[in-house]
Design a protein around this nucleic acid. Sequence first.
DNA 1: TTGTAGGCGTTATCAA
DNA 2: TTGATAACGCCTACAA
Lengths: 349, 349
Amino acid sequence: MATPEPTSLPPTKGRSGAKDVARLAGVSTATVSRVLNRSQQVDPATRERVLEAAAKLRYVPHGAARTLRSHRSKMVGAIVPSFDYALYARTTSALQQRLDERGYALVLAEHHYELAAETRIAGQLVEHGVDAFVLVGLDHEQRLFSLLQDYGRPYVLTWGVDGAQRHPSIGFDNRAATLAVTRHLVGLGHRRIGLLSAPPEGNDRARARGEGLRAGLAEAGLTLDPRHIAYAPISLAAAEAAMQQLLAAPERPTAVVATNDVFAVGAMIACRKTGVRIPQDLSITGVDNTDLGATQTPGLTSVATPITEIGRAAADQLVARLEGLPCETFQAFPVELVHRGSTAPPPSE
Amino acid sequence: MATPEPTSLPPTKGRSGAKDVARLAGVSTATVSRVLNRSQQVDPATRERVLEAAAKLRYVPHGAARTLRSHRSKMVGAIVPSFDYALYARTTSALQQRLDERGYALVLAEHHYELAAETRIAGQLVEHGVDAFVLVGLDHEQRLFSLLQDYGRPYVLTWGVDGAQRHPSIGFDNRAATLAVTRHLVGLGHRRIGLLSAPPEGNDRARARGEGLRAGLAEAGLTLDPRHIAYAPISLAAAEAAMQQLLAAPERPTAVVATNDVFAVGAMIACRKTGVRIPQDLSITGVDNTDLGATQTPGLTSVATPITEIGRAAADQLVARLEGLPCETFQAFPVELVHRGSTAPPPSE
DNA sequence: TTGTAGGCGTTATCAA
DNA sequence: TTGATAACGCCTACAA
């Protein structure tokens, strides 16, 4: 034994198994299993004895053994882009809570906006035997879809709706969100509207939200000036820097549509530092209606998205599919524009 | 078959096992195992063949089987109070990232500030076979500690330091955080300082932070007026309501120490709605130095806490203990006061 | 260096 | 309704 001996995990030290419970209750392990798995085929009296014995021994079933034999781990895997900025936290929270109620545990990981990492992590989750998957967004590597296909277990894409209905999905119309704010801005009289967004590659939400802006502009016979587009990774600092570019652009836009509240608040910070007044000099809008945006001065006009509903619905759908119950595999929830003080008519020239 | 048939999970449908890899590589399953577990005892040529075969068959080991046999699941369980408000998100993120690098998956759950729920969930994590635990805070049910004792695996408490060193812990001095802000406020001339906090029961962080305020006041020969204390659950709305009480209190405080940034921002909102100017009429401070506080107008004076360091250190410690390597089981990181615009001398009477 | 064989703790299939 | 028994897929002695 050369290595420091991996902390020799006591094989099953004091822990008692189904066998112990069976012995104490005077039944076989098969009966113990039946009782604990709520099978109806068991005499109330014996059930009682078994439960007593299990309680007395503080019996905790061995999940791995159960998984190995039954092919169900009672774990659901979720891979989200990031825990930061509370963008996905509320969805994850709702998901976890609902899964917990249904007796499932959540195995959670981040991919930091790298789809290759997402695929790799999905492989690990398969290895850990999760019964189902929750993914964020519609864009994923083909390899990931192949993996899911081979694995043959339920999965659901969230935060977007798959128009072609190729994959079960639960979300909302990201395009509609920015379309709504754009109409609002155009209605206020804005003609030069900029875009502050996450890089669109591999991020369907960012793409759809950008399209919403373009569509809204097109409705009014306007176009998106390429010089009025700035992409940045999702962080306040990066958004602030990107906004500085837009502020320095020729024919500076009178309004900026940010594809989420983090970008929008980063933009507000840039404006504060530059002395650009919101909304008198420039209007700014976000998406997701987070506390971060709502508590700014002035409050951020944003679009409320159904982030907790998505988490709950994802849990419900997956559990239903795992238990062979009927369910909706495609769900879209509405979004709603929330007016606050960050938008106003453009300054008169 | 009466019930809708639990989606008959294909036992091992197409999925290939170690046996398949062994056959294709022309070796035994033992050798496959050795190759995949980086045992040195294997001929480079055979190793190569095995890896090729594994890749060809897209072999993914069956975690449950491995766990059952090896008594190590390569999963770490973490239970945090809540995903909301990004208070614990950054710690969780750092934890997950570091665990992932080390080949461990994170099973994550919330207890919503209910310690009984925490104990229940810990039991589920035991059932799922996690190799180690990360808990937040020092306060936990005795039942939970018993459970951990029985389970006999590593665990670490975070976000606090266990002075008595009864349990491995990684955190910072919560008392010192509010002590620092209190000294700052006292130094500015404040004599009536209020407290806005989470209910202290079962929340050692809140208690320690409250004590920091009391200690800072005591240093200056001052005391905390009971009428200047307000407790609220952790949410912006609740904090706002609690702050309204403080604003309505007799001999209104000239400064309020909030035990975290969420409370502080909730307090700022209350002030805005009431026409109380910050910092001219009232100073406010937070703890945790979140983006939420930093982006307010004026910026929130707060205390930077080592939240990502905690996550990383927790992962490092647990992995080290699991692998029998040496490590620090008690770690304290420093905190740092961050001055922003929400604090100023009290108004002259 | 490699193969053989037994068992980890549970659930499922039978038969009783 | 209950019990005996055989897997589940892998790891790890031990033997070769």
